[in-house]
Design a protein around this nucleic acid. Sequence first.
DNA 1: CTTGCCTATTGAACAGGTGTCAATAGAATG
DNA 2: CATTCTATTGACACCTGTTCAATAGGCAAG
Lengths: 201, 201
Amino acid sequence: MDRMSQRTRLTPEQRREQLLDLGIRLFAHHSLDEISIDVVAREAGISRGLLYHYFGDKMAFREAVVRRAADALVAQTAPPATGEPVERLLASMTAYVDFVDANYEGYVSMVRGAASDPVLREIYDEAFGALGLRIFDAGADFVEDTPAARLMVRGWQAMSEELVLSWKADPAGLSREELLGVLAGSLPVLLEMLPERTRRE
Amino acid sequence: MDRMSQRTRLTPEQRREQLLDLGIRLFAHHSLDEISIDVVAREAGISRGLLYHYFGDKMAFREAVVRRAADALVAQTAPPATGEPVERLLASMTAYVDFVDANYEGYVSMVRGAASDPVLREIYDEAFGALGLRIFDAGADFVEDTPAARLMVRGWQAMSEELVLSWKADPAGLSREELLGVLAGSLPVLLEMLPERTRRE
DNA sequence: CTTGCCTATTGAACAGGTGTCAATAGAATG
DNA sequence: CATTCTATTGACACCTGTTCAATAGGCAAG
């Protein structure tokens, strides 16, 4: 019936690109577990073996896809180069909310999906670490870079993530600006909760 | 060699109980993915078929185990019936940290792994909803139960979870008591960040 | 045009785990 | 004891991840 069985031979770069693009597209609306070798291969019109040729195994492929998504997040939420620290923070948070808005399904599946594999978790951590680090290397007059401060920033990020996602699902009477105000305003407050000793280096 | 192949016939209640207990024990130190039918059956000294007889499939078994763990979490972190709100909160948070301590791997995989299966996600949400609700129906003189307040509590829970897990991995110079202080102290502070209007009903 | 080579690509076969079901064997009952 | 009930088993079919020798697309040389 269908004689789609013809091979199409691409350069390694093209093929790799095609597969990654497909992965990103699938990732936007499917959880990671749903991105099986079979699905990707069928969708791309290639054999399973080829996926193994380009990416060692299933996890490696997922990792490559997630890494792309994470890079996009980091890039799009880059704060402006100039301005007051608090304003830059607010700008970055705004971009973050926008990003979540634009890529909701994909973002959720990345956040909630960095679960099973430690390597995926690490990619996620790396991306969020980069997001968090900006707070320190910015003007950074309201934080010193200590282990405790980094821990607190992580906690604040987790809170922000949860607030944005929950707020998307149900705004709970908060306007977008009010939400952003809470997000940006809570970081300094939280950092002040740390014992004095742990905020100096 | 080993003639352990003798059947032992238990009542359905006993068997079910044994398997769930085993599941909980495995859950404490293994991620959900590591709790395969094979492992459980071998560990319990029964055939795989029996597991399917009692719990329809793998997911149903995992759900039963996670539900038990979630119930245990809610039970073990119940705040004392008397005392100042802040003290009761602190006691509850202490119990929470202890629980995470005792069931680290399983807890992590429950938190991070509620992603794939919607049913697991719902169990998780249910448990954390119950945890959060206690803050309102307690003495609750520092919060009124509004949509915005509930949102904020969710955010605070996410932060607490992240802080405890990250702190376990690397204490970052914070003592256990200091961590608990930050956790319990941050909730009122965060709630005060909400616009006045959204904190009344 | 065609021959040959390089390598992108395939398909078959294997491994390991999930799920099904008729057959088997404890153990209680008469 | 014999019988009956059902908890329990083991073999088997199936689905996915993974490996690898065999295949064929397309470019360059003759």
